[in-house]
Nucleic acid binder design. Structure first.
Length: 356
DNA sequence: CAAGCGTGGCA
DNA sequence: TTGCCAAGCTT
């Protein structure tokens, strides 16, 4: 086993000489650390930077965030994905105002009680925001520690996770958690990468067990992943006097709270127009006439792929009432930007505008 | 505790 | 084109 002192010293020295500049790193305060950590969940630094800048400009304090509408919050988050993060951040801000006088608590277990804050994020706010001695484990750290210590258990199982957290805690240098945690993550992001790690320039290559055994490619061990299903989906662009009908998705689940063109999944053996008429009847309670196809869009989500066919439609019978959807609204084309949508619906919007 | 939850970059 | 993965959390 590597010696603690020698490992942590090498990592800290390397980090202080090589850390990248980031907006939340250059002026750290607990609120900025919190927002950045939520945005960075499963998301790359370069993607987050512009969202973070806009967010901190618009919601300068936790109080301002708490007082905002969910619509404004989702709008700033649009395009970033995993929208429950935005809804939870908003909710948590209200908890912080109501129960912690508007300031984040400098306490690991109190932090972890906030919606959207798990063990990693609580540790990150505690160490990076408050300078406390708390360990963190993210995807980078799992990989880095699994290689340095040649961990043979799969890191995405309960047993493997426990082992990694124990290593993170055991090797945490007292008083240096802030830089040490970031050093491990920075090493994972820039040197100890999933593919083609740059072991030649790694500051701990003489200590790393996987490097010594030439097992970098075999670590970390993970369990096999499930196949992703493929769905065919139909969406209706229902127009009326220059406006289109948007429906708001239910608050939870996929794209929760976002606006979309109504429609849904094609069932076995069903034609697309039939699918669309059925979905619109169930979702809005009206009948439509299906017209020409506006476009075909392919998109990959985390756990499935879709091919979406969008059709220009007309209302035939009845006035749309929200049944499956939370709410519906006729929206001028120029106002589409005010409504937070997922990628696919945004693509359809662009096609509509381009075709006019 | 396995499954659900977005999007973009890269090989 | 497809699969993999990226500063995870919730149910």
């Amino acid at each position: 086993m590597p010696k603690k002192r020698s490992l942590t010293k090498k990592l800290l020295t390397w980090y202080r000489a090589n850390k990248r500049s980031m907006p939340w790193r250059d002026h750290p305060d607990p609120y900025a650390v919190w927002v950045s950590e939520i945005m960075l969940q499963q998301t790359r630094v370069e993607t987050v930077v512009p969202y973070f800048e806009r967010w901190m400009m618009r919601f300068t304090t936790i109080g301002k965030l708490a007082a905002a509408s969910q619509q404004d919050v989702l709008n700033l988050w649009e395009g970033l994905g995993y929208y429950s993060r935005a809804r939870n951040l908003h909710k948590a801000a209200q908890v912080v105002v109501d129960e912690h006088q508007g300031a984040l608590p400098a306490d690991l277990s109190a932090l972890q009680k906030l919606p959207g804050v798990g063990r990693y994020t609580a540790g990150a706010i505690a160490s990076l925001g408050f300078g406390l001695d708390a360990p963190v484990v993210d995807g980078n750290i799992k990989r880095v520690l699994a290689r340095i210590f040649n961990v043979e258990e799969a890191v995405d199982t309960t047993v493997g996770e426990k082992r990694i957290w124990a290593l993170a805690e055991e090797y945490l240098p007292g008083g240096e958690a802030k830089d040490y945690n970031q050093a491990l993550m920075e090493l994972g992001a820039t040197i100890c990468t999933p593919r083609n790690p740059k072991c030649e320039t790694c500051p701990v290559n003489t200590i790393c067990e996987a490097n010594k055994l030439d097992l970098q490619g075999e670590r970390p061990v993970t369990k096999p992943k499930a196949e992703v299903p493929h769905y065919t989906v139909a969406a209706a662009v229902i127009q009326k006097r220059g406006r289109v009908l948007l429906a708001q998705r239910p608050a939870d689940g996929l794209l929760g709270g976002m606006w979309e063109y109504p429609g849904g999944k094609q069932e076995d053996g069903e034609s697309l127009p039939v699918c669309l008429r059925r979905e619109i009847r169930e979702e809005l309670g009206v009948k439509i006439k299906v017209g020409e196809e506006l476009g075909l869009y392919r998109h990959a989500y985390s756990h499935f792929r879709v091919t979406l066919h969008a059709f220009l439609c007309e209302l035939k019978v009845g006035k749309p009432k929200a049944i499956e959807a939370q709410a519906i609204k006729w929206v001028w084309l120029k106002d589409l930007g005010d409504y937070p949508m997922g990628k696919l619906d945004r693509m359809i919007s662009e096609t509509i505008v381009a075709k006019r």
